[in-house]
């Protein structure tokens, strides 16, 4: 078991997400930086879907009440196990009674804390991903974030060999990322000038961003004529509302919407966006769908991601 001594700014339980319920209006949830999340599980030999804590900004302090093994990935922050400083992107053994303290992010925005075996949290609709706007998931089941005093159990089996993620696979969150845009949806309806501008202008991440959407500020983009009826919105969709400031839809997005969309951000790039602090810049560059699909295939294969498919029963009803 671990006990939350201080939940910090915000910490939530996340597994890979709640799949198969979009047609009922229930969104996916799950880690907004899938790359960092999947590395943490991989470092511990966990299933890709094992539940972790998503720590926004930092400030978390926990006490381990049993021996185990854990890993911390994501944003660059100071971390200590008792008084010993810890390196991120590495697995560690821990003894009952030891305290892990995560400082505030210096670069990046979210950290992932995984334990070997994963946190044991009662799933709701096949997932324990915390989605506040849907009032579902998490430790209490109602979508609320973790609080001081909460305890989470886990079953630790055999100790793991020491592993770390090589620098080549980590993201440098201080850099201005260039994210791939897969043209799609109403892309062809936007004026040519907008399609080009989106891929050479810089945009700034606005502070009104959250797990539902990341709002960008930049030169206003002209939108095509309105009058779209609501349609499915994928994670990473680039919506352009009438004020011309794009919003990139994240894991807690609404399932349907009626704003025109330029396309969808390459899913293997999306974690970099999720790690940007307000005020940081971001750039976009067109990527062919077939290239993004190939990259996603490799990404899922590398991390052994098996999407839950529901068979022919009209998915989950």
């Amino acid at each position: 078991m671990i006990k939350i001594l201080d939940a910090g700014m915000r910490a939530t339980v996340q597994d890979f997400g709640r799949f198969g319920y979009l047609s009922k209006g229930l969104t996916r949830g799950g880690p907004v930086d899938e790359h960092a999340f999947l590395w943490a599980n991989r470092l511990l030999g966990n299933s890709f879907n094992a539940a972790q804590l998503e720590i926004t900004l930092g400030g978390l302090e926990v006490e381990f009440q049993q021996d185990g093994c854990f890993a911390l990935t994501g944003a660059d922050a100071e971390a200590h196990l008792d008084d010993e400083p810890l390196t991120l992107w590495q697995n560690f053994e821990v003894k009952a009674g030891q305290r892990l303290k995560v400082g505030y992010a210096r670069a990046g925005l979210r950290l992932y804390l995984a334990v070997q075996g994963g946190f044991q949290v009662e799933p709701k609709w096949h997932s324990c991903a915390t989605v506040e706007r849907d009032s579902v998931g998490g430790l209490s089941g109602d979508g609320s974030p973790l609080q001081s005093g909460d305890t989470l159990s886990f079953h630790c089996d055999t100790p793991q060999p020491s592993r770390r993620v090589s620098w080549a696979y980590r993201s440098d969150y201080t850099k201005t990322p260039v994210l791939g845009l897969i043209p799609g949806y109403q892309y062809d309806d936007f004026p040519m000038s907008v399609r080009e501008a989106f891929c050479y202008e810089d945009f700034e991440v606005s502070k009104d961003s959250n797990r539902m959407g990341i709002r960008l500020a930049g030169k206003a983009l002209k939108t095509p004529r309105q009058g779209l009826v609501s349609e499915g919105i994928n994670i990473g969709s680039v919506q352009v509302p009438s004020d011309g400031q794009p919003i990139i839809m994240m894991h807690d997005r609404q399932t349907l919407g009626g704003y025109p969309k330029l396309g969808v951000i390459n899913p293997v790039d999306l974690g970099k966006l999720a790690q940007l602090q307000p005020g940081q810049k971001v750039r976009f560059s067109r990527v062919e769908a077939s290239v993004a699909q190939q990259q996603l295939r490799r990404f899922y294969q590398f991390f052994n991601v098996r999407l839950p498919c529901q068979g022919g029963d009209n998915l989950r009803s």
Binding site: L22, S23, E231, G232, N234, L256, P308, C309, G312
Partner: peptide, 24 residues
């Protein structure tokens, strides 16, 4: 859904469109 269920992870019908999420 019946033809491709095992290769899909979600389906979202709306007014005039159907969003098909598939397993790459």
């Amino acid at each position: 859904s019946s033809a491709l269920g095992n290769n899909l992870y979600d389906l979202v019908p709306s007014y005039n469109s159907l969003m098909i999420y598939y397993n790459v």
